[in-house]
Amino acid sequence: MAVAIVQRQPISRVAPIAWLIAPALLLFVLFFALPFGVMAVMSFFSGNPVSNPNAVLTTRHYERFIYDSAGIYHDALWATLRIGLITTVISLLIGYPLAHWMARMQSRLGHALVLMAVIAPMLTGIVVRTFAWMTILQDKGVINTMLMQWGLIEKPLPLMYNEFGTVVALVHIYVPFMVLTLTGVIGRIDERLEQAARSLGAGRLRAFVEVTLPLSLPGILAGSLLVFALSISAYVTPSLMGGTNVLTLPMLIAQQVGTSFNPNFAGALGIILLLVSLVIVVAYNKILTRLSGEQGLA
């Protein structure tokens, strides 16, 4: 009996939580770490080293991007980041007041209805929503047709096939992510803190700026990072809404894989996008940490 207990001890050392984490970990390793590793390795080869014995190690894909003799890659990176940043800021400006209102709503029914309204667009696919925006913003779309019929404009306004149209559609798609993230964080902020500030003489605005806003910074950070990450990796919406006037790195990556059949350069572009994004995310985290006076937010 004593022997049996001794033998069982090592098994019992595996915490139950480890078994619960295992599926997620396996998923992460199989569908992120492993493909990412393959992509990183491929980006340093001239061809596919598995099927092509002549494939050699090279840094030429990175050099191609860095020297940019074609004159399009740096522009594409900047356009990707610019669209991501603008989409994030606008989503935050739209999403924060809505999230604050939802979090402070007393009525459970009202909260449920607004929540449904926020989530409802997510029940429709991104492609469908983007096509809906196309029917609204294109030259013969709802807005331009109406304005022209009313005689307010003679030529269609350039609402689509540019960054404006791309950002409009992206904001519409990603605002729910911002709202849902912020609502959870703002909802957990003790309302009495704001009331205490006001009872000590702070106005509504000052109480918000000095109490609620700093306490909601973790939500702002999480929501912003989520929307930023989704925006810079978006492919369908920029390619449909941007036409030829918008060229982002995900579009270039798809082009390299799908029509230039160069997965190695596509891999290099993917790594570059990830590295640049990581630098921005770390910097953003540090700035918000400093602003909130805390040690770390994420």
């Binding site: 074609a70 004159g71 399009i72 030829t244 230039s260 160069n262």
Partner: peptide, 9 residues
């Protein structure tokens, strides 16, 4: 690749 870059610009 050269043509792609040229026409994109």
């Amino acid at each position: 690749e050269d043509i792609d870059a040229r026409v994109t610009k």
